[in-house]
């Protein structure tokens, strides 16, 4: 409950319990899935027809089919791939790895040592009130435009979610498990990797998902505001050049990437957390 998105995560859990009855229920002749599909179709229709019928002027919105065509065009364009897509993906991946490794280590520290907890705990809950992004101009001024400030900023943003969820997970380990580790006389390394972290895994996996989505958000935001490459830079550049179709194609690719990563991650983690829980 220290970071908000962790709390929203729990918003999805009660749903799973009462799903069976809801899945069958119909309102106005449609199930939940039916309404979701209708909503998606209406959005698609609006995005396609509004600019074509002149409901929205064509300088502000292009038809969805044009966005999709252009997005596919970009995906086969080697310059776009090497200048924009790959740098973004690389930055996201590196920031994610840094955030996870340092977040778990700091989380273990906070859990283990009272002084670390007393110093960091008040800031863990308040950290996301600070617009971390304000640091980006400073990092750029000190380190120059490029890969380093982007990765650093994304790591700084994602790491705190990782720390919080690691501490939450470790705090939730039952006493008996800790006693077992003591009885087995494991060395600190074994204790950490064979007992503590596996026991905290359900919470840590929530943190992993958040860290990934936070790295993605910050990498794209930095590229968007001040950068010379990356997907975010492609979109802001297209906007500045009035290349509206390019801009929307870029936005579409970002959404597909973000949602794809999110759902892939959720799907990959589901069996894992079940195994740990059972």
């Amino acid at each position: 409950m220290s970071t908000g998105p962790v709390a929203t995560e729990s918003a999805t859990t009660p749903l799973r319990k009462d799903k069976p009855e809801i899945v069958r229920e119909r309102r106005l002749g449609l199930t939940v899935r039916g309404w979701t599909i209708v909503g998606a179709l209406l959005t698609v229709l609006f995005l396609e027809l509004a600019p074509r019928l002149g409901l929205v002027d064509s300088f502000s919105l292009v038809p969805l089919s044009a966005m999709v065509m252009r997005a596919f065009g970009l995906l086969t364009d080697p310059e776009f791939l090497s200048q924009d897509l790959v740098p973004s993906l690389l930055s996201i991946l590196v920031a994610f790895i840094f955030a996870v490794v340092s977040g778990v280590l700091i989380g273990l520290l906070v859990w283990r040592f009272d002084w670390a907890r007393k110093t960091l705990d008040p800031w863990l809950a308040t950290y996301y009130a600070i617009p971390t992004f304000a640091l980006y101009p400073l990092l750029v001024a000190l380190l120059g435009i490029g890969f380093v400030p982007i990765v650093l900023l994304a790591t700084l943003f994602a790491v705190v979610a990782m720390i919080s969820s690691t501490v939450d997970g470790l705090d939730g380990i039952p006493r008996s498990v800790l006693r077992l580790a003591a009885v087995l006389q494991l060395d600190p390394f074994q204790r950490t990797f064979k007992v503590l972290l596996p026991a905290a895994l359900p919470q840590i996996s929530v943190g992993l998902r958040l860290a990934l989505s936070y790295s993605l958000i910050m990498v794209l935001a930095s590229e968007f505001v001040l950068s010379t490459s990356g997907l975010g830079h492609f979109i802001s550049n297209a906007y500045n050049d009035f290349a509206i179709t390019d801009m929307y194609a870029g936005v579409l690719l970002v959404f597909v990437l973000a949602l794809g990563l999110n759902f892939a991650f959720a799907a990959a983690l589901r069996p894992q957390s079940k195994r740990v829980l059972s």
């Binding site: 968007f224 997907l231 973000a258 949602l259 999110n262």
Partner: peptide
């Protein structure tokens, strides 16, 4: 249940790219 997925999707996308 109907609105949860779209709301969560809108929450998790990087909205900054929509600013233009």
């Amino acid at each position: 249940a109907v609105f949860e997925t779209p709301l969560f999707a809108l929450y998790s996308i990087p909205k900054v790219t929509l600013y233009p």
